[in-house]
Amino acid sequence: MLTNPTAIMHQNLSMAMKNTPEEKEVSKNTLMGPPKKQMTKAKEDDILQPSRRIASYIDTIQKKREEIKNG
C-alpha cells in the first residue's frame, strides 16, 4: 500500500515542468514592428492552474539551491 506519495508527486511535477511548451514568437499584423511574444489563451489559463504555480515555486527554489551548491 502506498503511504507516502511525495516521491510520485515530485516526479510527476518534474516531468510536467520538463514537458512545458515554450513560448513561440507570434508575429503581429504590423509590418514594420518586431515580432512580439504573445500569450495565447491556453497559456493564460495554464498560469491559473495550481500545478503551474507550484512548478514556478519549485523552479525558484531549485535555482536558489543551485546557487548555494555552486557557492
Partner: peptide, 27 residues
C-alpha cells in the same frame, strides 16, 4: 497537501543545503 508536497520537499532540501547538512532525499 498533495499539491504543496513537492514545494515542502524542495524547501527542506534548501534549508539542509544552506546548513550544509547531508541528507537522504527519498527521491
Amino acid at each position: 497537501g498533495m499539491l504543496i508536497l513537492p514545494v515542502l520537499v524542495e524547501l527542506i532540501m534548501l534549508i539542509a543545503d544552506s546548513a550544509k547538512v547531508e541528507y537522504t532525499s527519498g527521491l
